[in-house]
Amino acid sequence: MTFEELEHTADVRMRITAPTLPELFAESGFALAETLYGEYQRDAATVSFLIEAEGKDAEEKIVDFLSELLFLTETEYLVPVSFDLAADGNAVCGTVSGVLFDRTKHAGGIGVKGISYSGISFTKTAAGYELIIIFDI
């Protein structure tokens, strides 16, 4: 796991690191999913969806990507188990695969209302990328 929860009084603040941009997006997706569902077994995928996001800068791109993923979790009852993504210029696109929400397996988390720009930080590091982001609860 390459994400960890940081202190925040009301919401969920995450630090996510990854060696490449597509992996950073994927790990951010898992950070969001584990906030929603608690830790869960990543079973073999039964459904998949196209996911696309864009933004003028990295922060907008990641907020848009996670907002799209949040939309899929709420409307398709998607619990992601894998991402196949490509990040290019102002866009990120690819496939998210997963299983359908099952209350007996995925009821360990908390609802996320939105992806916040407050305190967002996207940094290129020697090892790759680091993102700090807040999920509004």
């Binding site: 929860e5 202190e7 925040h8 009084t9 009301a10 919401d11 908390i110």
Partner: peptide
Amino acid sequence: GRVQSRSS
């Protein structure tokens, strides 16, 4: 009003 984080 909260005074303690969820993680804490």
